[in-house]
Design a protein around this nucleic acid. Sequence first.
DNA 1: AACTAGTCCAACCGCCTTGAG
DNA 2: TCTCAAGGCGGTTGGACTAGT
Length: 184
Amino acid sequence: MTKPPQKRQKKRRWTPEEDNKLKHFKTEYPNLPWGEIIELAKLDRDGKSCSERWNNHLKSDFNKEKFSPQEDECIIYLRRHDVGWASMVTFFPGRSYNDVKNRGYQLKKRHAPISDSVRDDLQALMADLASLITNVDPNAISSDDQTSDHSIRGDDLEASTSGSADLIPNHGPNATRSIPGPTS
DNA sequence: AACTAGTCCAACCGCCTTGAG
DNA sequence: TCTCAAGGCGGTTGGACTAGT
């Protein structure tokens, strides 16, 4: 007997009221498991949903400005070097995990190019970071990006997503480096 | 003004890891 | 050692919004 595929839940946006409840109880009891926060706040959500909402929207004041070209190129470059989304977020203080990930998928669709200057900056940045991290594969930061047009194709990103370890674990404030944001 | 296509982004899903009992 | 729940992560979906016609 094969189980029929679960019907996907209709999307329910978080209301300001739900946000407030979640924020209140999570701030008040930061160590409480989500299940108990849900009970206290009387939220009709599951733990994962709450965790996601908290981490991507409520935890801090996330930067909701458009991604700058430098940030875009940084994402492409890091992705190419098998840096996972979660690790990548450390390069973008103020951005949420979901924002970075969404941007990454957008760029993947567009086959966005990487400029020479940004590539060089990022190589230096990653070498810098690698020196802070002991368990890093030095080959992962070698200058292997000397392709003719420095453009990245969708399948490049595709390949880079398969089963390799994250390059940049979060090692505290020292490991967090920022990429130039939008200049307005 | 109305319709359509494309884009953006929040929310959902499934798999995996981790830690407690 | 095993089981189970919680949470992290990567990937996908779909509703809202916007630009073009």
